[in-house]
Amino acid sequence: MARKNPAVRREEILAATVEEIEATGLRTLRVSDVAARLGLSASLIIYHFETKEALVAAAFDYAGRQDIDRARKLAAGTDSGREVSAGTVSARERLRAVVGWYLPSGSSRSWKIWIDGWSAGLFDEELKSTFAAMDREWKSILARLLEEAIAAGECAAPTSGVHAPTRRAETPTGGTDARATRILAFLDGLAIQMMVNPEAVEAEQLRVWADDFLTHELG
Rank of each mutant, 00 (worst) to 15 (best):
L190G: 00
L206S: 11
T181V: 10
R109P: 00
L38A: 06
D177L: 04
E148C: 12
A36S: 14
W111V: 09
L145R: 02
A97Q: 07
L95Q: 02
D33V: 07
S85P: 01
D33G: 10
L103R: 02
L103P: 01
L206P: 07
K52L: 07
K112Q: 09
Q66D: 13
N197Q: 12
E20R: 14
I141H: 04
V99D: 03
I115D: 01
E148M: 13
A157D: 10
E125N: 06
A2Q: 00
L122E: 09
K73D: 03
L26G: 13
L74F: 03
L146T: 04
A156E: 14
G25D: 12
V89Y: 05
G153F: 14
R207Y: 00
A91I: 01
I141M: 04
E137G: 08
A120R: 08
S110W: 08
S43E: 12
G117S: 12
A91N: 02
E126H: 12
E93A: 14
A35L: 07
P172N: 05
G106H: 04
A86Y: 01
R72Y: 03
T28M: 14
G117F: 05
G81E: 07
E20H: 13
S85F: 09
V8H: 06
G77A: 11
E22P: 01
A132I: 03
D69Y: 06
A7Y: 14
R92L: 08
T181A: 15
A71M: 12
P198W: 04
E12P: 05
T171V: 15
E137V: 14
K73N: 03
R167S: 00
A157P: 07
V99C: 12
G81Q: 09
S80P: 00
E125D: 13
T166C: 05
A15E: 14
Y47A: 06
D212V: 07
E12V: 07
F131M: 15
A36K: 10
A59Y: 04
V18L: 13
P165D: 03
M194T: 03
M194F: 06
S43Y: 08
L29R: 09
L40I: 00
I150C: 09
T28D: 15
G174A: 09
V208Q: 08
W209I: 05
A156L: 13
